[in-house]
Design a protein around this nucleic acid. Structure first.
Length: 603
DNA sequence: ACGGCGCCTG
DNA sequence: CAGGCGCCGT
């Protein structure tokens, strides 16, 4: 049993799932060995202190079949310090097998989910609930009972024994009751054999269906969900262990109970999270029919100030944010009134073709138009004899290989996704921000836009024609229909960073091409609407070609191109930071964003 | 420490 | 397009 039998450990901020650990390893787990933020944990294994970090996989290459005993869910309380610093610490390697990659793909969402779970746990339990934890050697019966009652109570009302009033405190006081323990174990068994899997979400399945060894039997998803508890045990190789032996000794039984209880807590928290996610039907349908579902929220927006539940009203957000509040722009009153008008028009919804390029209608047309335009552009230009630039373009592409990636992209409003209150997301982005339970409910009422959509992206691209370096204020003004959080702000800033990146790459590419062509004349450096450079930029920022690019952008593009041309021709590109001087020039050429961008709704 | 930016990578 | 990282200014 000394052989390392780690299969894998997934660790989020809220839980540690150790598959294939031996009981000895896990019994050495010290709940107190958690740092205050709950982002890492240490425990004792084979004489070493294993430090576990979030978003990492831990496992050894040992034989998966050997020594597999159980799977532990070690729920981490949020208090305690890492007190084991004096022992050698080893961070286990993470060779990232395929299963890990699969998990990692959704790690972002799981991390968010884990933080939600943390919040809920913070509401439903208090730190230090686990008292002596699962330290088997020190485990006493009383501890287990105590933990049992304390943990179950707030989370599982359905199955709790609530026959008598005040039984809760009473049961805590009543410590040594073996019969009670047995009864409880029976209840747990019954419970796990009747788990209602219908409420399970895909995510929670992923979380609870532990990554397994390759020799695990192939099981269909539905099969795997018939009994999550026993099934997961099967996955860990419980069949190979004499199950009955496990119940022979009392310490083992106690450990199993602790196991079961922690698992139950994990499930309960997971369900709580699910219920929160599911308790927002408006948010879920909001994506599909933005205009329609806005209406119930909007009905009294203009008439009654006290009932401002509009999802476009950023002014009436009192105290829903803690840290990011300073980022919320105070909108002028004019905005509110104009929004009422806009919303009224939206309610009427009788605009056959909206002039607003960010409207839902135009978004729907975008695909067709872009496809048509793309074909048109290709027909008009590319079908002719390949220009010299295209040859250069191919060369440039070979020089600057920038792999096209599958776009993770922003959530499309047409995709039915589980939506979260942006304020909640804010808290997810700021794990140290704890939301009170009542404010959590309040946040739902003041929910604005759930996040940035593809239409927001489209709008941002069009804004780029005016401003390459938008200030945070401009972003907030132009995207006032989203609840501004740090995450949203960062995302918008990142978008423009990406836009600039593409912009400058194109500039450098065309400047080098012009230089190679030996075109020192200014005419060739001119950027007109028919120029290759402009068409490349237009295809990127205005794919649907339904937006009239301002003339100023052409001027700025021309200046940029010349700056690049001059710099390259002067050999400044030998300096690694030669572009910075150009950036400094270009950033001063930003224009004001038209009022339409500030007043119109993106969605 | 934090935010913003640019570069690199996937 | 997003994440990570390093740099820089505040």
């Amino acid at each position: 049993m000394n052989q390392s039998v780690w299969s894998k450990a997934m660790y989020s901020s809220s839980s540690v799932c150790l598959d294939g650990c031996t009981a000895d390893h896990l019994s050495s787990f010290q709940p107190s060995n958690l740092d205050a933020s709950g982002v890492s944990a240490t425990f004792h294994k084979d004489g070493e202190i294993i430090k576990m970090l979030p978003n990492s996989a831990y496992y050894s290459s040992g034989d998966p079949a050997s020594g597999l005993i159980c799977s532990h869910h070690l729920e981490l309380s949020s208090s305690g310090d890492n007190t084991a610093g004096h022992l050698p610490t080893r961070r286990l390697p993470s060779p990232a097998p395929s299963s890990y990659q699969d998990w990692n793909l959704s790690s972002g969402r799981q991390a968010k989910r884990a933080r939600v779970e943390n919040i809920i746990k913070g509401m439903t339990s208090s730190p230090g609930l686990y008292c002596s934890g699962v330290t088997a050697g020190q485990h006493e019966e009383v501890d287990c009972v105590q933990e049992d009652e304390t943990v179950r109570e707030p989370l599982d009302l359905k199955h709790s024994d609530r026959s008598g009033s005040g039984s809760t405190s009473q049961s805590r006081a009543t410590r040594k009751q073996p019969e009670r323990q047995q009864q409880h174990l029976r209840q747990l068994r019954t419970k796990f054999s009747h788990m209602d899997e219908a409420t399970e979400t895909t995510d929670s399945r992923k979380e609870e269906k532990h990554p397994t060894w390759s020799d695990s039997p192939e099981t269909s998803p539905s099969d795997a969900l018939t009994d999550a508890y026993s099934e997961s045990r099967k996955y860990q190789g419980w069949k190979k262990v004499k199950l009955m032996n496990y119940f022979q000794s009392k310490p083992e039984r106690i450990k199993l109970m602790a196991d079961v209880l922690k698992y139950e807590l994990s499930r309960a928290v997971s369900r709580s999270v699910d219920s929160i996610f599911k308790s927002m039907p408006l948010l879920q349908t909001h994506d599909v029919e933005p205009v329609q579902t806005d209406m119930p929220l909007q009905t009294s927006t203009c008439g009654d100030n006290k009932l401002r539940l509009s999802c476009c009203d950023a002014v009436e957000v009192p105290d829903v944010q803690t840290e990011a509040l300073s980022l919320v722009v105070q909108k002028p009153n004019v905005d509110t009134s104009s929004k009422c008008v806009l919303q009224s028009r939206l309610k009427a919804h009788h605009r056959p073709r909206s002039p607003n390029p960010f409207s839902h209608d135009s978004a729907l047309r975008e695909d067709q138009l872009s496809e048509k335009n793309h074909r048109c552009l290709q027909d008009g230009h590319s079908e002719a004899a390949p220009s010299k630039f295209e040859a250069f373009d191919a060369h440039w592409s070979s020089v600057k290989v920038r792999a096209k990636v599958k776009s993770r992209s922003v959530r499309s409003p047409h995709i039915h996704t589980v939506s979260v209150d942006p304020v909640l997301l804010e808290s997810l982005c700021l794990p140290h921000v704890k939301l009170e339970s009542d404010s959590l409910v309040k946040n739902n009422l003041y929910m604005l836009n759930e996040g940035l959509t593809t239409n927001h992206l489209k709008k941002a691209k069009l804004m780029f024609f005016y401003t390459r370096y938008p200030s945070s204020l401009v972003l907030k003004v132009c995207f006032h229909d989203v609840q501004f959080t740090r995450c949203i702000t960062s995302q918008l800033i990142k978008w423009f960073s990406n836009f600039r990146e593409f912009y400058y790459i194109q500039m450098e590419k065309f400047a080098r091409h012009a230089l190679m062509e030996g075109a020192a004349d200014g005419r060739r450096l001119a950027v007109g609407r028919e120029s290759e450079l402009f068409r490349a930029l237009n295809m990127h920022y205005n794919k649907a070609n339904d937006f009239q690019v301002p003339e100023r952008f052409l001027e700025v593009a021309e200046i940029t191109l010349r700056e690049f041309y001059i710099a390259i021709s002067m050999g400044k590109d030998r300096d690694p930071s030669w572009k910075k001087a150009i950036y400094k020039v270009i950033c001063k050429l930003d224009s004001d964003v038209p009022a339409d961008f500030k007043s119109q709704h993106t969605g």
